Amino acid sequence: MQQRFNQRVVIVTGAGSGIGEGVAERFFAEGASVVLAGRGRDKLQAVADRLGDETRLLVQPCDVADWGQVQALVRAAVERFGGLDVMVNNAGVAPEGDALDVSLDDWDQALQIDLTGVFHGCRAALPELLERGGCIVNMASVSGLGGDWAMAAYNAAKGGVVNLTRSLAMDFGERGVRVNAVCPSLTRSNMTEDMLKDEALMARFMDRLPLKRPAEPADIAGVVAFLASDDARFVNGVNLPVDGGVTASNGQPRM
């Protein structure tokens, strides 16, 4: 595998499972020193134990909804590895329900983790990234590019991430920091286990998914790594669908 991230330092939030774990594994495999962040120390430690080389890993529990904890996360990365080159804001939740069904607590949690948490990560990382010409990759979603039935909070939060990414790219690109986002569709993870077991639901997904399978975390991780690499040095402000072709459709049914 290429070693595009030798001597570079990467923070990945939500690194204890799913897409975040896959992203952390990809950066580690390409030579980066990786800070594994998330709310569950045990899950993060399990990822670290599997990856191995402790000299290039730091486990740092962090609730991205808490500004102080995110500041501490960035400080810990800099103290351990000497700086920061890439911030991957991946942590997220996905409560279900339309505007009448979703609880106010779930609404607040989705906005605090999925949107404010991304803002916290960007705000805390930017001073370090500006020093080294680093970059940010945010985890948006196809649900931020278009709406879903009965996902009001998630749609609102991910839509916010999409436009926050554009705003940051405009404000900081001229200062040497690129900001992009990836927009996955259905991806195999702990968050989608129940969906993947629902055969009728999966049949409807496959009717809309030209590649005829859910994404694996590694599918998303490869694109995150590309956006963070020098191969994407002229890519800025992009919200890139990684969706197997879902957004290629205009929404009309198969004829």
Rank of each mutant, 00 (worst) to 15 (best):
T13Y: 08
G16F: 05
G18V: 07
G18A: 00
G18P: 02
G18I: 09
G20T: 03
E21V: 01
G22T: 11
G22R: 05
V23Q: 05
A24D: 07
E25P: 02
R26D: 04
F28M: 09
F28I: 02
E30W: 07
S33N: 12
S33M: 09
S33I: 01
V34Y: 03
V34M: 06
V35M: 11
V35S: 09
V35P: 10
V35L: 06
L36P: 07
A37Y: 07
R39E: 13
R39P: 11
R39G: 15
R41K: 15
R41E: 14
R41V: 10
D42A: 15
L44H: 12
Q45T: 12
Q45H: 04
A46D: 12
V47A: 07
A48L: 13
D49I: 05
G52Y: 09
E54C: 01
E54N: 02
T55I: 00
R56A: 07
R56Y: 00
L57T: 03
L58N: 04
L58P: 06
V59L: 11
V59N: 08
P61A: 06
P61T: 02
D63F: 05
D63L: 11
A65V: 07
G68T: 12
Q69Y: 05
Q69S: 09
Q71A: 10
Q71E: 15
Q71H: 13
Q71F: 00
A72G: 14
A72T: 10
L73F: 11
V74F: 09
A76Q: 04
A77D: 08
V78T: 12
V78R: 13
E79M: 03
